[in-house]
């Protein structure tokens, strides 16, 4: 191998590694969205759940010097917000889109609020030392969870309940299973996983929580979920694709590929969203949502 080839290989390996890293929060949040949406509850609140997860993980890791406690706190924070979301959409019959939007707004307001109370500034939490941060733990977890969720949905009774709650809630109810209980589980699980995704963002990919650090990743996870047709493995692959776009646009910043101008990274940034619109429009494959997605089920 000559020098140029070695360089190319090194670049490729670097790119693969950073793709896996930046995909991690996406995969986790998308799995969360999958749990909720397959059970019949639309979840555009992933963004907010990730944000509070990222915040809680950073705070607890900073104060206890234990990333494991941090991850736990991130999951708990996500679950707490999910409980509020569930209360609104499962119990109080709120419109799922409206309530999801409100949850995101709430998280965006609460995060700087908590920062201000704890640290006197809204910008970010104190930096966490490299020795207390995860290197690759959440990434392994994320991809193990993809397989676990796939197996769970396919082969376990409770996985079957989740699928029926999203496709034929009446049939599930007739079989004696409480539809809304299954949906509660799906929604809370979405909070736990999104919170974990947020934790990966703040204590694996960076060294602190910073304002609006999710920057639309919750929505990108939602896009991946649709692109992956609400199935675990294709969804994870979609996350990898979007993560690859992200990794490559970091690499391409300022690089001149043709002509004299650097590549506008904006076009790579918008790619996941454009792809999702095209997929939904049936222009690239077809996607079908769970049949009862978004419908309130009136009987506990």
């Amino acid at each position: 191998m000559n020098a140029a080839e070695t360089g190319a290989w090194a670049l490729l390996i670097q790119l693969a590694a950073s793709t896996l890293r930046v995909s991690t929060p996406l995969v986790l949040a998308a799995l969360g969205g999958l749990a909720s949406e397959r059970s019949g509850v639309i979840n555009i609140a992933l963004e907010g759940m990730m944000l509070v997860g990222a915040l809680a993980a950073a705070i607890v890791t900073h104060s206890t010097a234990s990333p494991w406690l941090g991850v736990g706190a991130g999951m708990a924070a996500g679950a707490l917000l999910a409980l509020l979301y569930g209360l609104c959409v499962i119990r109080l019959r709120s419109d799922q889109i409206v309530a999801g939007t409100a949850i995101n707004l709430l998280a965006a307001g609460i995060a700087p609020f908590v920062c201000k109370v704890l640290y006197g500034a809204t910008g970010q939490t104190p930096s966490i030392g490299i020795e207390n941060r995860f290197q690759s733990g959440p990434t392994w977890m994320a991809f193990a969870l993809v397989l676990a969720v796939a197996a769970w949905l396919r082969w376990t009774p409770s996985g079957l309940w989740v699928r029926f709650a999203g496709e034929h809630p009446e049939a599930l109810s007739t079989a004696g299973i409480r539809v809304n209980r299954v949906r509660w589980a799906g929604v809370v699980l979405s909070g736990v996983l999104s919170g974990l995704g947020g934790a990966a963002l703040s204590i694996q990919l960076s060294s602190a929580f910073s304002r609006n650090m999710t920057a639309g990743r919750g929505f990108m996870a939602l896009a991946a979920l649709i692109f992956g047709k609400w199935r675990p493995v294709p969804t994870a692959l979609a996350c990898l694709l979007f993560g690859f776009a992200d990794a490559i646009q970091i690499r391409l910043q300022g690089v001149v590929l043709w002509g004299s101008e650097p590549v506008p990274v904006q076009f790579i940034q918008i790619l996941p969203y454009v792809v999702t619109v095209l997929v939904l429009a049936g222009l690239v494959g077809q996607a079908r949502a769970p049949r009862a997605l978004g419908q309130f089920f009136d009987r506990g």
Binding site: L84, C88, R91, L92, R93, S94, D95, V98, A99, T101, A102, I103, L105, L106, A108, G109, I110, P112, F113, K116, V117, T122
Partner: peptide, 27 residues
Amino acid sequence: EHVTRDLSSIIQALVILSVSAEGLWSW
């Protein structure tokens, strides 16, 4: 001392959640 403009997002969110909670009002 402790509160910032972010309170507006919190209040707005709580107002949305309150007004959209059909079940709350019928209850």
